[in-house]
Design a protein around this nucleic acid. Structure first.
Length: 717
RNA sequence: GGCGAGGUAGCUCAGUUGGUUAGAGCACAGGAUUCAUAACCCUGAGGUCGGGAGUUCAAAUCUCCUCCUCGCUACCA
């Protein structure tokens, strides 16, 4: 297949409302960086763009929580995240931000182009409106009681306690968080992207052109294809492009005051505006990167972003006349020590934490950035969710980087100093044997294999090949045993062995460079050669070092990581989790953002419901009953169908507690029942009443029942 | 419940269109060695390929059923 004329590589825009963790790094930024470094070593025309995603409601809400402004929030996190990437060797050509004027213009132009062509639909809907502040309320600005778990401070889009997705209409007693008033319904106009009209295009483009048996094009990962298929088959809906909010890119129309572009619409356009800014900074033309069919566009993302990069953004690009991505090598998720990573639950390692603990310390430095890059690549969730463990991190460093790779390089240099006077020895071609020739051949083969794997985004395997080549070097040294050779009679054998080992070392520098750039640099220093050696075309060559050249004294590439260091980290992790858990109430166990790469951490406080008078309470008829039968409701995960003996009658009650109790375990239990609640049908079964449950801070449910068994039908007041 | 992705040695994972005794790395055990960060090198043990049935001369690989994990979705008063 012909090589693309140029590449545009993107990594998901981090949402600028907080720090990013190692899962994000492993999922998108690191593989993207490796790919880009490889392409650049190949001297291909490539631009690597990224930047902060700074719009959306989570940011002004974060600002409210911290008692500051949205602008202050993004100005705080944008530079930190940017610096974190630098410290970890993620080298973007530009790290832009969506709050920049250039981005606003670009996004507005994009919207206008689609709108003028009639690609957008306009719909009027009723939405909650706060009369006190004269604003339509975004989902996040409405609080109310969660219909699922009864939590009083659920947001209009999601309950932060039980994790249920909501819409503002579902909330009981909705309240505006801006004024505290009860919002009214008011009609508002919005623009929609009719995704349903593009189903045929998506089906053809994704499933046929990039399906498993795609002949000419790149086949996408099965995880990505599967998710796309699931979305398309599920039926696509028109999606609102605008919303009522004052934080974001203003809708560029006269009759759209108070409206901004929905963050999911403007964020991916951030890739384009970043490219434009890069072009301005470097006196280049950005247009071919987005418009010329000979550009290869690749999006590196985590799996939570698949729908945006494979379905929605491609539709936008197609309508706008841009090129489409050639591939979207999304990674799955990386768990941490047996549990999902989550900043809000304190179960994560932020990039910032790692940098402070390992890279900035005296014993760390850039080599420990490489150790992290090594381990994260080795366990990259390319085909399924994977798991970060501190023990695994230590093992990867100690038994692979130190023992195999670092050790080989060190042996080669030490032996060269001991046996060859600190200079690159000559090669005596007439004395080469099969073992020598085989190793030389292996170096060339390794280069080809690594190249192929990288082109297929198989970073884990590619990295293994580099280490494996170092392993072959160790084996070769063992077979040759130059330290046992007679320095006079067998000098030519010593020379040949060390000559080959040193050339191999230089090759290892070239091959490891995309993965561990700091290590490659250090190797160049030891070998006293210039950066140019790292050009990919040099891999496989046995002429990288000149004969007779003096090299530097050996230095260790990696240090060992001690058990005590690992213990400290594990303790730190547990402490952070405990600390978060002691704060009430507990954030939901999961939840990934729909636009950026990170879920947001949200403030939640316990507030009391409004006061009531006795008569209000007296309306509720509470009775004690005994569960006499219980069975799971078909086709529902959370529902149990109960029969409750209330003394005066037996009733069927459907209760959403199946995730907490087994049907057979609760038979005979006494419960408190609201008996005068209006009947309601669920899954075709009429429920006549409601079982009262208490929920502890871990989210576990408990029955409310009398201390000892009492008569059914007893009143509660 | 529906859809999607997975379930292969203690751990992390490979296994192309079904074909000889199912592979690798790490960890582990034994041996050898000492140039090297007690590192390297050799050898070995370890798996009824989640479970069951079927198709086939032959199945980790195809079909059906079933269990478990993850994601999306439905249900949730």
């Amino acid at each position: 297949m012909a090589q693309p004329k140029r590449y545009l590589i993107t990594a998901a825009l981090p949402y600028a409302n907080g720090l990013k963790h190692l899962g994000h790094l492993a999922g998108a930024y690191l593989p993207a960086d490796i790919y880009v470094r490889y392409l650049k070593a190949q001297k291909r025309d490539v631009v690597f763009v990224c930047g902060s995603d700074e719009h959306g409601t989570a940011i002004p809400i974060q600002a409210m929580k911290e008692g500051t402004t949205a602008q202050a929030i993004i100005d705080k996190y944008h530079p930190i995240i940017e610096q974190n990437f630098k410290d970890l060797g993620i080298e973007f050509d530009i790290y832009h931000r969506t709050s920049s004027p250039l981005h606003h213009e670009t996004a507005q132009e994009f919207f206008t182009a689609l709108n003028k062509k009639g690609d957008l639909q306009i719909k009027e809907t009723e939405q909650y409106f706060d009369e006190a502040t004269s604003t339509f309320l975004a989902d996040r600005y409405i609080k109310g009681t969660c219909p699922n778990c009864g939590y009083e401070n659920a947001f209009g889009d999601q309950c932060e306690r039980c994790g249920t997705s909501l819409s503002p209409e579902m909330l009981i007693n909705p309240v505006s968080t801006l004024s505290g008033n009860i919002p009214i319904k008011k009609s508002t106009k919005h623009w929609y992207l009719p995704l349903d009209k593009h189903e045929d295009f998506l089906r053809e483009w994704i499933l046929n052109e990039h399906g498993n048996d795609a002949a000419a094009n790149e086949a996408w990962r099965s995880t990505v294809l599967g998710q796309c298929k699931s979305w398309i088959d599920g039926g696509l809906q028109p999606r609102a492009v605008t919303r009522d909010l004052d934080w974001g890119v203003k809708v560029p129309l006269k009759d759209a005051a108070g409206k901004v572009l929905y963050v999911w619409f403007d964020a991916p356009i951030g890739y384009i505006s970043a490219t434009k800014q890069w072009a301005l900074d470097n006196q280049k033309n950005w247009e071919p990167y987005w418009n010329d069919k000979e550009t290869k566009l690749v999006h590196f993302i985590g799996k939570d972003n698949i729908v945006f990069h494979c379905i929605i953004f491609p539709v936008m690009l197609k309508l706008h006349g841009n090129i489409l991505p050639t591939n979207v090598p999304a990674n799955e998720f990386m768990n941490l020590e047996g549990d999902k990573m989550s900043t809000s639950r304190g179960w994560s390692i932020e990039m910032d934490d790692y940098i402070n603990d390992w890279i900035k310390k005296d014993n760390g430095g850039p080599q420990l950035a490489d150790t992290l890059r090594y381990y994260l690549t080795q366990i990259a969730p390319e085909t399924k969710d994977s798991e970060f463990t501190w023990k695994g991190f230590q093992d990867a460093n100690n038994s692979e980087l130190v023992s195999i790779f670092g050790n080989f390089v060190n042996r080669a240099l030490v032996l060269m100093h001991k046996l060859c006077g600190g200079k690159v020895p000559p090669l005596h071609a007439d004395h080469l044997d099969n073992i020598d020739r085989k190793l030389v051949e292996e170096i060339k083969l390794a280069k080809d294999r690594i190249e192929n794997l990288l082109e297929q985004y198989k970073f884990r395997e590619a990295l293994f090949e580099v280490i494996d080549l170092a392993r072959k070097g160790n084996k070769y040294l063992q077979e040759k045993e130059p330290w046992k050779k007679n320095p006079v009679d067998e000098k030519h054998l010593i020379d040949n062995c060390l000559h080959i080992c040193l050339q191999l070392t230089a090759n290892l520098a070239v091959l490891i460079n995309p993965f561990l750039p700091n290590t490659a640099k250090k190797m160049l220093y030891l070998l006293k050669v210039v950066d140019k050696i790292l050009d990919w075309e040099n891999a496989g060559s046995m002429k990288l070092l000149s004969v007779g050249y003096t090299l530097r004294a050996p230095e260790l590439l990696f240090r060992k990581i001690e058990d005590t260091e690992i213990e400290v980290q594990i303790q730190k992790l547990n402490a952070s989790k405990m600390e978060k858990e002691s704060q009430e109430p507990l954030p939901p166990p999961e939840g990934h953002s729909r636009t950026g790469v990170a879920g947001s951490q949200l403030p939640v406080t316990n507030t009391l419901k409004d006061g009531i008078v006795f008569d209000d309470f007296a309306k509720v008829d509470l009775r004690i009953g005994t569960i006499i039968s219980a069975k799971k409701v078909e086709k529902a995960d959370k529902l149990l169908q109960l029969e409750v003996d209330l003394g005066f009658e037996k009733r069927t009650i459907v209760s959403g507690i199946a995730l907490h109790f087994n049907a057979e375990d609760i038979i005979g239990k006494q419960v408190t029942v609201v008996v005068n609640l209006a009947p309601r049908k669920m899954k075709g079964i009429e429920s006549n009443g409601m079982i009262l449950m208490a929920e502890d801070k871990t989210g576990k449910l408990h029955f409310i029942n009398p201390e000892g068994k009492i008569d059914e039908g007893s009143t509660v007041s």
